[in-house]
Structures are given as C-alpha cells and as structure tokens.
Amino acid sequence: MYNNASHSIYANPNVGEIDDDKVHGLYLCRGDVAPKDCQNCIDMASERIQRECPLKKKAIIWYDQCLVRYSDIPNFASKFNVSSYYWIVYNSESFSWMNQVKGISDAMFDNLTPKVTNDLKYAESLDEITPLSLSQKLYGMVQCIPDLSAEDCRACLKGARSVIPKSIPRECRVVHESCHLSYQFKNPDEGRAVAPPPPSPTTGDKYKVYLCLDQY
C-alpha cells in the first residue's frame, strides 16, 4: 500500500488495488522518529489496518510513532474534513492548579501552532515550568499531514485543542485524520519521556487505534 521510503517520515498518496477499485494511501511518522523506527511502525500499522479494515473504502490507524491512512478519494491528503477527534489519556492524574496549568499549556500550543507551517508540518517544544510549587517540564508536539494547507492545518489543530479534557491530565494526545497533538508534564529529572504504546481497541472507547469507513 505504500512505497518503501525508509528515509522519509511521509509518503504522498499512491495507488493500489482493492477488488479492482483504486485506493490511495499514505503514511506519516512523528517528526522526531528515526527512519528505522518509522519503517517498523509503518510495517506494523499497514499489516494491522488491512487485517482490521478489510474491503473498506476508507481507513486510518494511529500509533504513537506513525499513522497509516487510505481512501478511494484522489488527493484526499490535502483535504481537511471537520470529522471526529479522538483523545487518549496516558496519565489521567490532574493538577491542583488546573487554571494555571491550562494557561501554560495553552501558551505552549499558541507558540507551536504558527511554527507548524514548515515543510514537515511538525513542531515541538520542551520547557521547564515553575507555577507556584509545581516544578515540571512540559513537552508539547503538533503535526499535520504535510499536504494540508497552513490554514487547514491551523484549523485542524484548533479542533484538536478543543477536545483536550478539561481536567488537564498530565499526559494526553489528540488524533485526527489530518493532524495530531500531544503534551506531557514530567518531573525535570525525567527529561522527555516517550509515551507508552497505545492500548488495545478493546480497552475502551476513549481510544480508537483504527477507524474503518464504507464498505466496497
């Protein structure tokens, strides 16, 4: 379904065949993922999506390091649809100072969003913060499908921010077919932590590892 571009985090839609109908597919790895890890994630996601979504016109699968998506619509990667966002809470522990923490995370995403208009449509930050007696490092990441326009990328990320739980958990990720974002609050001596692997789709409806739409 995808071309073997092991030194790239992104492959533009290409054409394959499913039951004599054309399907256009893409993959996207997180901007900081090494090529080897990117390739491993794509291999795993491509196998999984074909197993979970047989004979579907549209499908998408998300992992922490990559996503794989296909559709019967040409040039679908450049189109932004206001469809469902899914949020994943890796650590549901919240803060006593939610208003201050929300202000800090909002400021971080306000700063990251204009930077995501680069060619990779990816931006991240890692800052030490000390609101009141809280000493933490805040890691944030935003990313859009590279074919998406800057305007649609900003719109997609705005929608993603709107569904972050109001409780402001310590670690959270929001995914959409055209963009995704995440943040993590960590103790300074932990540095930047790698998010855990996604749970099985049977563990609850707050996380959907794959989405299958329309049967051939």
Results as ranks from 00 to 15, higher is better:
residue 112 L to G: 02
residue 141 M to Q: 14
residue 145 I to K: 04
residue 167 S to M: 01
residue 143 Q to P: 02
residue 131 P to R: 02
residue 111 N to G: 12
residue 170 R to G: 06
residue 112 L to R: 06
residue 153 C to K: 01
residue 54 P to Y: 09
residue 48 R to S: 15
residue 128 E to M: 07
residue 59 A to P: 01
residue 104 I to Y: 11
residue 83 S to W: 01
residue 140 G to D: 06
residue 154 R to H: 12
residue 53 C to S: 03
residue 165 P to H: 08
residue 153 C to V: 04
residue 45 A to R: 08
residue 165 P to V: 09
residue 166 K to P: 04
residue 114 P to M: 11
residue 133 S to E: 14
residue 127 D to E: 15
residue 152 D to F: 11
residue 135 S to I: 15
residue 117 T to W: 08
residue 89 V to I: 14
residue 125 S to Q: 12
residue 91 N to D: 11
residue 54 P to I: 06
residue 146 P to W: 10
residue 77 A to M: 01
residue 48 R to W: 12
residue 98 M to V: 07
residue 113 T to M: 09
residue 128 E to C: 11
residue 58 K to M: 05
residue 122 Y to E: 08
residue 58 K to C: 05
residue 121 K to E: 06
residue 96 S to Y: 11
residue 86 Y to A: 08
residue 89 V to W: 04
residue 123 A to K: 06
residue 167 S to L: 02
residue 132 L to M: 05
residue 138 L to W: 00
residue 144 C to S: 04
residue 50 Q to D: 14
residue 50 Q to E: 09
residue 148 L to S: 10
residue 173 R to C: 02
residue 160 A to C: 13
residue 83 S to G: 14
residue 143 Q to L: 07
residue 124 E to R: 06
residue 81 N to K: 15
residue 110 D to A: 13
residue 47 E to W: 04
residue 104 I to K: 00
residue 120 L to S: 15
residue 59 A to S: 08
residue 81 N to E: 15
residue 114 P to D: 11
residue 147 D to G: 03
residue 88 I to P: 02
residue 141 M to I: 08
residue 141 M to S: 08
residue 45 A to I: 04
residue 50 Q to T: 11
residue 159 G to T: 02
residue 57 K to A: 12
residue 86 Y to P: 00
residue 108 M to A: 14
residue 85 Y to W: 09
residue 174 V to M: 00
residue 163 V to R: 01
residue 176 H to W: 03
residue 156 C to M: 12
residue 95 F to H: 03
residue 170 R to N: 12
residue 132 L to Q: 08
residue 56 K to E: 07
residue 149 S to M: 09
residue 108 M to V: 13
residue 159 G to A: 10
residue 92 S to C: 07
residue 155 A to R: 13
residue 175 V to P: 04
residue 102 K to W: 06
residue 125 S to K: 05
residue 175 V to I: 14
residue 56 K to P: 03
residue 166 K to N: 10
residue 45 A to N: 06
residue 121 K to C: 14
residue 48 R to D: 10
residue 113 T to E: 10
residue 173 R to F: 04
residue 101 V to S: 02
residue 166 K to I: 06
residue 55 L to D: 10
residue 57 K to Y: 03
residue 41 C to Y: 01
residue 158 K to F: 11
residue 93 E to S: 15
residue 147 D to M: 10
